[in-house]
Design a protein around this nucleic acid. Structure first.
Length: 268
DNA sequence: GCTGCATGATGAA
DNA sequence: TCATCCTGCAGCA
């Protein structure tokens, strides 16, 4: 379930679990066999996240670049069985990790890494001083609706299909609003909510955007399954805030959901 | 057992 | 805009 929060959490937890350790590395599926043999017996220094990308730093081996795409997932544990089509697996003396279904799993050289970093927009989980300005500039140049722009990783790096819908609900902005038509206050609200929501998701290990008070529980970790989002995948259901019917359409070649009454279209 | 879908992204046309 | 890559599992028979 990989949006940026999942990736940053993976970097943090995998650094803790495997950082500084010498690992046995192999490729159950075989498609990463050559590279795995280069990593086998090397020490993993740490794991870094950039938007939805992971970078594995090894002592004495090239950086490994992983992108989970839609299907990629890690299984980690003391007694994990790597699926036979795991692209890569490694083990320390106590734990095993298996990666299956990644869109990208390859060595990356410094030039390619620089290009990647330059291509990505501000990362809400690695905030910088000028993020809101950069976002405002990118949206000001954009010719597409905000609902589509939020999926563009050169605009913001880390938001995916769940968060784009939820953040626009929280911001009260109709997804079809042209990016250009957003006021400075709207852009700042979007950025603030994005940082808040992904930070919370990184901590929880899951996406919970609803206010716990609104569902009558003491904290975000107590929100029951099925009540964790305001609009995502809730077509036809009633808005948790106003009771209107949640609507859905295609935007940026993905489904999006919104509340026609809580979310207003801005005009240029 | 089979089908279709999923929190992603790219390259060709 | 479409086809393609990648895997697992819910929902159904």
């Amino acid at each position: 379930m990989p949006e940026g929060h999942t990736i940053h959490r993976a970097a943090r937890l995998q650094t803790k679990r495997f950082g500084g350790k010498t690992l046995r590395v192999w490729s159950p599926q075989g498609r990463f066999a050559q590279e795995a043999s280069e990593l086998d017996g090397k020490r993993l220094e740490r794991v870094e996240a950039m938007g939805k990308h992971l970078l594995y730093r090894w002592r004495g081996a090239p950086t490994l670049h992983v992108h989970l795409g839609l299907f990629g997932r890690f299984r980690i544990g003391p007694d994990v069985e790597p699926s036979p089509n795991a692209r890569v697996a490694w083990s320390s003396d106590t734990h095993l990790l298996a990666l299956s279904g990644p869109t990208v799993c390859e060595f990356i050289d410094p030039d390619a890494e620089r290009e990647l970093a330059e291509r990505l927009g501000p990362d809400p989980l690695a905030p910088q001083q000028d993020d809101a300005q950069r976002l405002a500039a990118a949206l000001g140049r954009s010719t597409i609706p905000i609902g589509a722009a939020m999926l563009d990783q050169t605009v913001m790096a880390g938001v995916g299909n769940v968060y784009r819908a939820e953040i626009l609900f929280l911001a009260g902005i109709d997804p079809s609003t042209p990016s250009k038509a957003l006021a400075r206050d709207d852009v700042e609200a979007i950025w603030k909510l994005t940082v808040e929501q992904l930070t919370l998701g990184e901590r929880l290990g899951r996406i919970v955007t609803v206010d716990p008070e609104e569902v009558g529980v003491p904290g975000p970790n107590k929100v029951p399954r099925g009540e964790r989002t305001y609009v995502y995948k809730r077509a036809g259901a009633s808005c948790r805030r106003c009771g209107s019917g949640i609507r859905s359409t295609e935007l940026g070649s993905r489904s999006i959901w919104w509340c026609p009454s809580c979310q207003k279209r801005r005009v240029a």
